[in-house]
Amino acid sequence: MMKLIQVLWPSFLVAGIAEVVFFTVIAPQELYLFGQPVYFSPIATYSIGFFGFWLVCAGSSLMTLFFQRTSAEINQSASD
């Protein structure tokens, strides 16, 4: 449970900051997806954007946690 918190909590905070910065610069009505304008409401666009940022940030935190393993932990899981 602690590793899950170590991944999700920092990524949640950074995703919130990224969304504020992104949507301060870009209006939701000006977004295009595959060459087509996005017709979602601004709240839906903000929500989708937040979860997208959170997913990317969680992936980054998960990779950091993965690469922090010691050689003993790696070798132990390989022998099991």
Rank of each mutant, 00 (worst) to 15 (best):
A44D: 10
Q76M: 11
T24D: 11
G52A: 02
I43T: 11
T64Q: 13
F67T: 15
S79W: 06
S79L: 12
F34A: 07
K3F: 05
Y39C: 04
F50A: 08
S71I: 14
Y46W: 14
L31M: 14
K3V: 13
Q68W: 03
W9Y: 14
I26S: 07
S47D: 10
L4N: 01
L31I: 03
I48N: 02
W54N: 00
G49E: 03
S77I: 08
P10Q: 13
A15I: 05
E19A: 06
V7Y: 00
Y46E: 04
L33M: 11
V20G: 07
G49T: 03
V7A: 09
G49W: 08
D80I: 12
S79N: 10
L65P: 03
L31S: 04
S47A: 15
G16F: 04
I43A: 09
S61D: 10
I74D: 15
R69E: 11
E73Q: 15
K3I: 15
D80G: 07
F53N: 06
C57W: 03
Q68S: 13
V38D: 01
G35P: 02
W54I: 05
M1A: 10
P42L: 00
Y46I: 00
Y46R: 02
Q6A: 15
I48F: 13
F51G: 00
A18D: 01
Q29H: 12
T45P: 00
S71N: 08
G49Q: 01
S41H: 07
Q76S: 06
T64H: 14
R69F: 04
L8D: 03
A72R: 12
A18C: 10
N75D: 13
S61N: 09
P37H: 09
Q76R: 09
M2S: 09
W9R: 09
F51C: 05
P42H: 00
Q76Y: 13
L4Q: 04
L62I: 04
L65A: 01
T24C: 04
M2V: 08
R69W: 14
E19R: 02
I48R: 04
F53M: 09
Y46Q: 05
A78Q: 08
T64R: 13
S47G: 13
D80C: 12
I26H: 09
L13C: 14
T24Y: 15
V56I: 15
Y46P: 08
A58P: 01
I43N: 00
V21I: 12
